[in-house]
Simulated assay, not measured.
Amino acid sequence: MTTADTDLAADIDATCRLTGTFTLRSGQVSSEYFDKYLFEADPALLSRVAREMVQLLPQDTELLGGLELGGVPIATMVASMTGHRTLFVRKQAKTYGTCKLAEGPDVAGRRVTLIEDVITTGGAVRDATRELREAGAVVTHVVCAIDRSPAGENPLADVGLEVRAVLTKADLDAARARA
């Protein structure tokens, strides 16, 4: 499920696509990289992405879980548009203070929709899903700005997550071809 806004795809592609040699979180090497911080640092572009994400949220969402670091500003913007409370989900639980993985309201028994910036293999989302479920959260969906995974594949099927994306790599490639 995507929104496929062609104007947004063109603007994100023009702002964020970098070429070169990049090692991704998964260890894969890519000749291109979508630097999500370039759109997240632009309030107007971030707002457009967040508006599209609002349309993709499951109706039963109780909490938004913004993944460290790129998912946090997006989740905050989506929360400001929807009134949903937000969690800030760390890559690892703190080893001091509250020792929490997810900062914010208690997740036990709550339906948490994860918010992520870019998904390729879904490693960070997979890790967060497992940890949140162990804490009692109900996690069935992730909404991301860009899904870079191969077309027609759900990289998070193994943990039972539905991926909903504002844009896919194919949307961004089509925008580049039109430019």
Rank of each mutant, 00 (worst) to 15 (best):
G104C: 07
L114Q: 05
V142Q: 05
A128F: 02
T140N: 15
A124F: 06
A128K: 00
A102H: 05
T129I: 02
Y96S: 05
Y96A: 04
E103A: 06
G123Q: 06
V112T: 07
V139H: 04
G122W: 06
Y96W: 14
I119A: 00
G136E: 04
T86H: 11
K91G: 11
R110F: 11
C144V: 14
A124I: 01
D117K: 11
R130H: 15
K91P: 12
D106S: 12
V118F: 12
V139S: 00
K100L: 14
V107I: 10
I115K: 11
R110Y: 14
A124D: 12
E116F: 10
A145R: 05
Y96Q: 08
T121K: 09
T86W: 07
F88V: 13
T120F: 11
I119Q: 05
V142N: 04
C144Q: 02
V143K: 05
I119G: 05
K100E: 14
R110E: 12
A128T: 04
D127V: 10
V142F: 08
G97C: 07
G123R: 04
A145I: 05
A128L: 01
K94D: 09
C144S: 11
Y96C: 00
G136K: 04
D127P: 08
V112R: 00
I115F: 13
V142S: 04
Q92M: 07
T98A: 12
C99E: 13
G104Y: 11
T140V: 03
T121I: 04
K94F: 01
E103H: 05
F88S: 07
L114K: 03
L114F: 10
I146D: 08
V138S: 13
